[in-house]
Amino acid sequence: MAETSGTDDSGSTADTGGVAERYGALAGAEGPSRGQAVLHPSRDRWFGVAATARADGFDQLLDLTAVDYLTYRADRSLPPGVQPERFEVVAGLMSHARRERLRMRVQVPADDATLPTLFDLWPGAESLEREVHDMFGIVFEGHPDPSRILMPEDWTGHPLRKDYDSGQIPVQFKAASNTR
């Protein structure tokens, strides 16, 4: 195992010093979570930190998702200097050579829910960012195909937002717009 033991199922905290040294200053803030290495870049540095991680050997983007913290009541426990916002986009990176994982969490404000796309670093971001766009309404600037992916194209609203109540939205499939 490399520096992070974030992959054992013991839940113990581990030494994430390697990642902190390499990215701590650059990313602005760093704080391990349950033994897993986590970076908190600001939104302006999101692409830059990702590009640095990419050049540093994190060759695969495994996961990209978002969380809507609108109704979160507990302490967000973000590192000092990170301003909590409604949305948080979370990306999981993997370095196969070092067998190391890195998680990047970025705060995205509700009134300007945009983020630069990571497609140019990892083309595998395409579907994952489409899903986040579909479910949370976060716009990925420069994305090659910014369409919905799971919901119908004419759907309104973003289901995984916390103010989107489940079970209270009538089924809204519309008639086909033309004949096929």
Binding site: F47, D59, G142
Partner: peptide
């Protein structure tokens, strides 16, 4: 797109 640190060399087709 800025030409920074693109995807792995050889993966040009998919990127």
């Amino acid at each position: 797109a800025p030409p920074v640190a693109g995807p792995a060399a050889g993966a040009e087709r998919v990127s």
